[in-house]
Write a protein that binds this DNA or RNA. Structure first.
Lengths: 185, 185, 185, 185
DNA sequence: CATGAATGAGACTTCATTCAT
DNA sequence: AATGAATGAAGTCTCATTCAT
């Protein structure tokens, strides 16, 4: 497993480091050292650190997208799905020592010149937003109302993540979960 | 006005830069160049870049605290205060080109070793949380319920800031505002 | 005692620091901080760091000269004086955690441009050399022979100091003492 | 010859500078300028200035060790070897403008935190001490007595180096040489 | 006598990237 | 595909010294 090809090893290593310490706090040297690759091997696979960041965000998105798609198609009550969604956030925050959202964290240090990164962030966020709108639509058949409700839950979800990270406490997630479920009924 | 003393010039310059580009993206060199000071003058006033960051966050906190205290003591309906609070957030986001919350953004790149910074973030966030709980308490006399409502609005506020920044759009603030007011009634 | 005048406080503080860490390892800031003086007060009393170094070496010399003069004039056998001289060196090395000779240590980092410092070193060393020659002359009445013997003991003394410092062990002093006394008889 | 690889060029350049001016008086900038390398190239090869110092001391030790081993195994009278040993010191002092022992000079500015450097100094000094003890053992078959004699000559050697450096004169070496040979017979 | 702000030069170290092999 | 050496620019921080008050 440690002997995956270099490209994957780099992506995995960088992912862990970017996530834990933040994109701007992790250097190429640290990545290649931990991934046990040579410097030039890195640039063979990724044209730049920024490109690696994009690859990482894309990778995370892919995996999280799958889980949302599954959840969306599961045969349980929509309200239950919202509960599960926040439960997943809760265990994610606790397991990651409250590191928060990789996308928001990366966005916090990305200027407007980082077009690729900003695009990844936007599309990931829109994807979650869409997911929540869809769950709401499974509950309310009024598209308009479902969208509004979804957006509200989206904002709650984001605030829960952000403040749980800032305060290193889990209550924001619990508060958001309760609020979301109340809005839902 | 441009000829304030060096310490203030540094703080102001650094504040603008930290806010716009993120703490980790701004170097001492850039700060002292824009503040028109010598490097050693900087270190005469601030023992480290991290200390400057703390001074900046403290400064921002001080000014924002004043505005919240004023708002809290104003003689208008609590629901109105919530509206104003989100209106201020809206214009702040728009005026700052959606740069978002200085505290959350700084927290995104601060490891657990940055004790001073993390403390500033925590206390600022708790201060806003307390403010919102107090406004709610002016509306509902049940302390328990007021606290829960305040915390929910706090989460909405944070999510609005974060996602407005991520998407460079204002709708999250508007959604949060509407949701908060609806929870309020 | 802590409230001696600034000039003396600076000299004493710098002396301790220069001795313990070496002239080049100690900065003006550290000195004035520990001496509780302002920076400009320092430059009022000493025109430069180098001048302070000279004052320190001169001060040390003065005090050590007194003890040698006393010893020279004491009414004991010359061989006994040599023994006492090395005994003093021994306790000095042990008490100072084997920091060695302030003069040699300073000379190790002083280029030929530091005229004042180099002069201090030279005259201090010549003073010790003269002292040893005189003690020998008290023992042998042949001036020529006394000088040679004195110089040999001087070299033993220096080697003892240097290697005791290098090895953080006391045996070089003991070896030198025994050798000196043997040469003496 | 000027176009050796960067690592060697750095080591050689730094060696010359450290020797001539003292470890603490030489900066990385001066080294890389004279070695015609980039700063980052330096840190590719040596993790720190201190590590470079260790490499330098180790290099010097290696070369001096060879010459001592050769001398020890030469087929001449032991007393002759002592004479040669001091002759070498004499020409070294004269050729180097009385810069003295790289190890003692470095030790004069190395705090107890410089473990690697202090180790190099100790082992170099012990190596010379052992050499002198062995030469003496070739002369006296009594191990005990040979050790004591060797140690005395070691102290003379060190004192000669130190004071020749301090006074910028060669007589301490000559005095030590004569004393050593006299002890020897 | 004393002070604290100001400074140019330089300290050591790391950055993301490229090149020859 | 992989490697290690090389790099210019930039990173944070400290140096001894001066000046206005």
């Amino acid at each position: 497993m440690r002997k995956a090809n270099a490209k994957d090893r780099i992506l995995q290593t960088a992912g862990e480091l970017f996530f834990r310490h933040g994109y701007s706090e992790v250097g190429i040297n640290e990545i290649i050292a931990k991934a046990e690759t040579a410097k030039a091997s890195f640039y063979q696979h990724y044209p730049s650190k920024e490109a690696l960041c994009e690859a990482w965000l894309s990778d995370v998105h892919g995996r999280s997208e799958i889980s949302r798609t599954e959840l969306l198609e599961t045969e349980v009550a929509p309200s239950k799905k919202i509960g599960i969604f926040f439960d997943q956030l809760k265990s994610f925050m606790e397991q990651s020592e409250f590191r928060g959202c990789p996308y928001s964290n990366t966005g916090a240090v990305s200027g407007s010149e980082c077009v690729g990164i900003i695009d990844q962030i936007r599309s990931h966020k829109e994807s979650i937003r869409t997911f929540l709108r869809e769950v709401c639509f499974q509950h309310i058949s009024d598209r308009e109302k479902a969208n509004i409700l979804g957006d509200r839950i989206f904002v709650l979800y984001s605030g829960a993540t952000t403040e749980s990270q800032n305060l290193k406490e889990i209550w924001p997630v619990e508060i958001a979960r309760a609020a979301a479920l109340e809005l839902f009924s």
